[in-house]
Design a protein around this nucleic acid. Structure first.
Length: 478
RNA sequence: CGGAAAGUAGCUUAACUUGGCAGAGCACGUGGUUUGGGACCAUGAGGUUGCAGGUUCAAAUCCUGUCUUUCCGACCA
């Protein structure tokens, strides 16, 4: 039984990972290309993954008092100009509306690439007193960035995301909030998506345009490249001063607010595909899989296979997202491959042989293990196996992350390691942007973050050899 | 933005070099037989050869432009 004959029409994951990725996106019906350049349509199976992430994350936000809002898609040009770094960071990829019908607009409107500017403007209007604070708002929306090169979910011109924006009376409260939201993202990525993370702070070169500090959740994909799955920014007063977000404090003095923003996008779906997928196709973490259990009846028209399958479906569907595949035109073998490609965590096979013994066969997507079980135990077994699958998927990724994280003490080692085993490199850094640039130029790897979990592996910068006290995780990125 | 490659039915492609009826496999529709790892028989439908222009009696084929996708690099919360 050869893998090659097993899977048709999907590029081998080790031959061409990029091609494999786009094959999965299309064949598993997550998304499709459209006539609008650089923009994809997210199909029901992909959108349901997003909804499942959204549902969980939104609930976590609400637990920490975040309220949802909706701000305009269009932002007048003058607002964008107010924060210098921010405008410089985004200007090259902003799309403009300059006409409506036959009429040329007096002021151009930018299609939001992110909403700091318009939200800050409104915050400035709304804020009067320290008693009003904090403002804890989020919005689920689309944004547009005129990317030159696009890939489904990972980088498209229009994408869906959530952006949270908060203002606070004190620096400490804002800083705490920045980290609190980062921890929510960390929980989502680890416990919902089963992807281990590296948490840390970005170097000044890599931080968000206009931020004082940017915190990040970094993950490693199948090929060893890094994917930034979410970020949380502490702005200090960088926006509140130009946007005039101020309030009267207890001492009756005017003070500028302290601000945060944090975001995560449909890029998470790209992360799921690339962290977990294999040569049989997509492999979805049980907690966000649109279909958690698929029942494939065998010899459906014989005995009472159909009735038994339907019975089983009715039991399971109360508790799990279940699908009963009664398509008559496909053989069981076809369906096995089809649902594996779609990444469904558990398949149940039920045919005359099983029904005779009051059993069915449970097959795990992650290990391909077949488990025969009594029908009366099915509910309990499914829950256990879904948990096992989640943990196993997490551990597989964790193992890869550990295997492909190496330590480098000098530039020669760094280059050698990055070229032989693409992954993360732990190395000391002196703090200079020149060293970051040099490493980038020589290896195309960038600093991912200064991990919270700092170790002192040496006291010399991996690049220039000068005194260094910061540990940086480096890697090539998506 | 720089370099490269590719666009023919939903998908994979043949015909292109040397201009002369656009052909196949998969997928799809219908009827039937099947069903424990990608079934089979019969039959049917599906095309502005990415788009625009040029050369020619004649263009999928030659020329020019353009659009899109993919890959590599630059850039990029």
């Amino acid at each position: 039984m050869q893998e090659k004959n097993y899977v048709k029409e999907i590029t081998n994951i080790d031959d061409d990972f990029a091609k494999w990725y786009t094959d999965i996106v299309i064949k598993a019906e997550l998304a499709d290309y459209t006539d609008t350049k650089g923009c994809i349509v997210i199909k029901p199976y992909g959108y349901e993954i997003w909804e499942n992430i959204q549902k969980y994350m939104d609930n976590e936000f609400k637990k920490v008092n975040i309220k949802n809002t909706y701000f305009p898609l269009l932002i007048p040009e003058n607002l964008l100009q107010k924060e210098k770094d921010h405008v410089e960071g985004f200007a090259p990829e902003v799309a403009w509306v300059s006409e409506a019908g036959e009429e040329k607009l007096e002021e151009r409107l930018c299609i939001r690439p992110t909403s700091e500017t318009i939200i800050s403007t409104m915050y400035s209007k709304w804020l009067k007193s320290y008693r009003d604070l904090p403002f804890l708002y989020n919005q689920w929306c689309n944004v547009l960035r005129w990317e030159k090169e696009t890939r489904p979910f990972l980088r498209s011109r229009e994408f869906l995301w959530q952006e949270g924006h908060t203002i606070h009376a004190t620096e400490k409260e804002a800083r705490d909030r920045t980290l609190q939201m980062l921890n929510i993202y960390d929980d989502v990525v680890e416990n919902l998506l089963a992807i281990p993370t590296v948490k840390g702070i970005k170097t000044p070169k890599e931080k968000f345009s206009g931020a004082e500090e940017t915190y990040t959740i970094e993950t490693m994909m199948y090929d060893g490249k890094a994917l930034q799955t979410a970020t949380s920014h502490y702005f200090g007063q960088n926006f509140s001063i130009p946007f005039n977000i101020k309030f009267k404090n207890k001492e009756e003095k005017e003070e500028y607010a302290y601000q945060t923003s944090w975001g995560s996008s449909t890029r998470l779906i790209g992360g799921i595909i690339m962290a977990h997928g294999d040569n049989r196709g997509l492999k979805l973490p049980p907690k966000i899989a649109p279909i958690q259990v698929v029942i494939v009846p065998i010899n459906m028209h014989k005995d009472n296979v159909y009735e038994k399958s339907l019975e089983l479906y009715n039991i399971l569907n109360k508790k799990y997202r279940t699908n009963l595949d009664i398509r008559d035109q496909y053989t069981p073998g076809y369906k096995f491959n089809f649902w594996e490609m779609k990444g469904v965590p558990i398949r149940i096979e039920i045919g005359p042989r099983d029904i005779e013994k009051n059993e069915c066969v449970i097959v795990r997507r992650d290990t391909n293990e077949k488990i025969v079980t009594k029908l009366e135990n099915i509910d309990k077994d499914i829950q256990n196996i879904l948990d096992l699958i989640h943990n196993n998927m997490y551990n597989e990724c964790k193992k890869r992350l550990e295997d492909r994280t190496t330590i480098a003490y000098n530039l020669e080692e760094f280059i050698n390691q990055m070229n032989t085993k693409q992954g993360f490199i732990k190395a000391m850094w002196c703090g200079s942007e020149e060293c970051e640039n040099k490493i980038k130029q020589l290896t195309s790897a960038k600093s991912r973050c200064l991990p919270f979990n700092q170790e002192k592996i040496s006291d010399k910068c991996v690049c220039c050899g000068k005194k260094a006290d910061k540990l940086v995780i480096w890697g090539r990125q998506y």
